[in-house]
Design a protein around this nucleic acid. Structure first.
Lengths: 209, 209
DNA sequence: TTAAATTTAGGACAAATGTTCTAAATAATT
DNA sequence: AATTATTTAGAACATTTGTCCTAAATTTAA
């Protein structure tokens, strides 16, 4: 691993543990036993490190989603995509926990996130349409209901890490499983009997892993 | 207004606009045209100011909720409580936007929030029971469904301000109305036909205001 | 009115932070 | 083997921040 990579790695650990505010470039350098000057040679500003980490987060998400979406859309695909997304988000949890502060400090990230959000929303719309066509979820009781649903899903998807940091005591794997299930269960009340059956089947299959 | 009150007032404005990190005690003092020494006489530490503001948030929430809950439980009550809560949360939005950072910086707040969360959850459980008894919402399709629902509701309730800061362009009142509706609409898929009717009636009544 | 308490202004000081610079050490290239 | 480029360490510097102190000004109480 190059020094540059190790800086990113160490910074991620420290940011995740303490948040961006109390972690300085000097702390990162000390943690990995290199000089402060050396660290500044690679990343002269803390913002550059955060920017790189945000870039890595997005890259990992893109890669994972692309891999999953290469298959046929299905309920299982949605579950897998959710689980994969949550796992990656948790890996970079400081970004979501300090989201507003980061967006204010580094404007381009805020802009990018906005675009990304629209893309994700459109992707989700396609999946909803698929689930409707397959008769797995009911048609809208109220106009715009599924648009609301998507917004709700993404708020929880972006901020469960913050809520978990404050409220959840327990190992990371349990935390991840709990909140993945919590978010995904948003869809349950929309299921048709057929959809519910498919969901419960997948749940059982997943528990065997 | 005493100097002490004005400090709290000014700090709230600055924190809401810029977040806690970039706002220093000197900025607050300068903003209100008093000396830095004077400000430190009243609040020697930034944490004390944040603590006071958190205290005020909780006090306002308690007061509002108590007033609303003095009446008979109803769907309208739940809507009013949601709207009132969201309004107060938005007034102190920096607390929710910088939640994780604040909890880490000031541990007692984190502890208090945990307790508060359990209280709110229990209150909500009572309301759910009431709505069930009145036949306004369906009984659980899946065990633990309404517990999940409450958790989902509170994640959105706590973090819509963060999402809105990044994604929503528009005046505060619209923002507030949009996210209040978004959170409340979580309950729609659980409505019985009777519940849906009651909801739509209340929606219309509310739009006339 | 006088004495005491409170409030205010301004400065002092150490510690921390972001940033830049220089020179040594190491690696790569010719 | 020589030289060029890259990487590293360490120091230096201005700024900022939290904290404390003193003395003046103002208000309150006796």
């Amino acid at each position: 691993m190059t020094t540059k990579e190790k800086i990113i790695d160490t910074a991620l650990q420290l940011f995740n543990k303490q948040g961006i505010d109390p972690v300085t470039t000097r702390h990162i350098a000390k943690e990995m036993n290199i000089s402060h000057g050396n660290l500044c040679y690679h990343y002269s500003k803390k913002e550059d490190i955060i920017g790189q980490l945000y870039h890595n987060l997005v890259a990992e998400l893109d890669q994972e989603i692309a891999a999953i979406q290469s298959g046929v859309p299905s309920l299982e695909m949605l579950m897998q995509a959710t689980a994969a997304t949550f796992r990656i988000q948790y890996k970079y949890k400081f970004i979501l926990q300090d989201m507003v502060a980061i967006m204010r400090k580094i404007e381009p990230i805020g802009q990018h996130f906005k675009v990304l959000y629209q893309q994700r929303k459109n992707q989700f719309r396609l999946i909803i349409q698929y689930l409707l066509m397959q008769g797995l979820i009911e048609s809208e009781k109220v106009k715009g209901q599924y648009d609301n649903f998507i917004d709700q899903f993404y708020i929880i998807g972006d901020f469960w890490v913050s809520e978990a940091e404050i409220l959840f005591d327990g190992p990371d794997e349990e935390k991840l499983a709990h909140y993945t299930q919590l978010a995904f269960s948003l869809i349950i009340p929309y299921f048709t009997p057929k959809g519910l059956e498919a969901y419960q089947y997948l749940q059982k299959a997943h528990q065997k892993d």
